[in-house]
């Protein structure tokens, strides 16, 4: 008995194979970029006139914070595509994002706190960006909690997709409200470091790290995507060759 489901865009076996071949093309450049950025950030870049050597935490904090937000965006757009065009591969992409996103949101929180400690003497500071990242972390937990709470995979995909879309609409509003809340209460703000004003030898490693982290995420996403595709394709005949 041979049946396959043909999806207009990106039929699963095709995507599965492409994901496999592309992974190393993302993984290796990511590794190199990160190592180079580490060297640039820790050794070459001069200490900050205000925060001294402490500012180097920026090279892990900023990329993690960037991943946290970018991954949610990727997750929500994949979810929207999956919901509107009923594409299982898109839901598989969304499912693959959540874990990594939550991890790096946590990293951005921890590194943010470690950065705040020498600056303000306390680990937690109600800085608007840190607060917004904390709320984003709770959004990730809610998303993963909803997925875990529903047994049927198809239903879990669609329900979590609705949540991701509602979440992504709210993220800018939450960020604005937290910034607004911070401004009216003049709470201390740690992250005054705005990137453009940084000298080139400080900025270059940061940009390389950002790109490195992004490529790293792409590699992880592709590996997880293959797993999620297998789960959704159940007993499609093309999987037999893959398993051989």
């Amino acid at each position: 008995m041979n049946w396959t489901w043909f999806h207009r865009l990106g039929s699963p076996p095709h995507i599965y194979r492409i994901a496999g071949t592309l992974t190393p093309w993302f993984a290796w450049p990511a590794g190199l970029l990160i190592v180079a950025a580490l060297y640039g950030g820790l050794v070459l870049a001069p200490p900050d006139y205000q925060q001294g050597e402490g500012f180097r935490i920026l090279y892990v904090h900023a990329p993690s914070a960037w991943l946290a937000v970018m991954i949610y965006g990727v997750m929500a757009s994949a979810a929207a595509v999956g919901l509107i065009w009923r594409m299982k591969v898109a839901h598989a992409v969304a499912a693959s994002c959540a874990g990594v996103g939550a991890w790096f949101t946590a990293v951005s929180l921890v590194t943010g706190m470690l950065w705040g400690k020498p600056m303000w003497g306390t680990y937690w500071v109600w800085d608007p960006r840190l607060t917004a990242q904390l709320i984003l972390f709770i959004l990730y937990l809610g998303y993963m909690g909803l997925r875990a709470g529903i047994d049927d995979l198809g239903r879990a995909d669609r329900a979590s997709a609705v949540l991701a879309i509602v979440g992504v609409v709210n993220i800018p509003i939450i960020r604005y409200s937290v910034e607004w809340w911070n401004s009216i209460h003049q709470a201390p703000s740690v992250m005054k470091m705005d990137r453009p004003s940084m000298p080139l030898d400080m900025l270059a490693p940061l940009l390389m790290m950002l790109l490195g982290f992004t490529l790293y995420f792409a590699a992880i996403l592709l590996v997880r995507l293959r797993a999620e595709i297998l789960r959704r394709e159940r007993t499609a005949s093309w999987i037999r060759e893959v398993l051989r």
Binding site: I135, I138, G142, G145, L146, N170, I174
Partner: peptide
């Protein structure tokens, strides 16, 4: 509550 509270922050 876990889903609703973050959305209710604003």
């Amino acid at each position: 509550s876990l889903l609703t509270l973050p959305l209710a922050v604003p």
